[in-house]
Amino acid sequence: MSECASSFQMMSFARGDLGRSATQAIDAHIETCQTCAAAIAESDVHERLVEALRESEASRCDNENAVAMFEAARAAILAALLDRS
């Protein structure tokens, strides 16, 4: 695709609603067109997913110490699990 896609096509692409050839065409187009690449990336199609990912990362920071303690015991837990059969 050498020309820019319509905004409807771009949002359909972002949602994964387009067919394979149309998807490939837009995928190739956005590699060289900053306007379309930005329009798709800055749309709110994936807003909920992005928020969930950010929350997940934030909670990871909150539990860093506890997870580190668990990780320190990982080898012993694995050994205990394998020893129980």
């Binding site: 900053q34 798709i40 990336a41 800055e42 997913l49």
Partner: peptide, 19 residues
């Protein structure tokens, strides 16, 4: 890199995460 590549990275990673 270029801003375009950053935008594309966002779109591609999100689409793959969904899949």
């Amino acid at each position: 890199t270029t801003p375009t590549e950053v935008y594309v990275a966002k779109t591609r990673v999100l689409r793959r995460i969904q899949a």
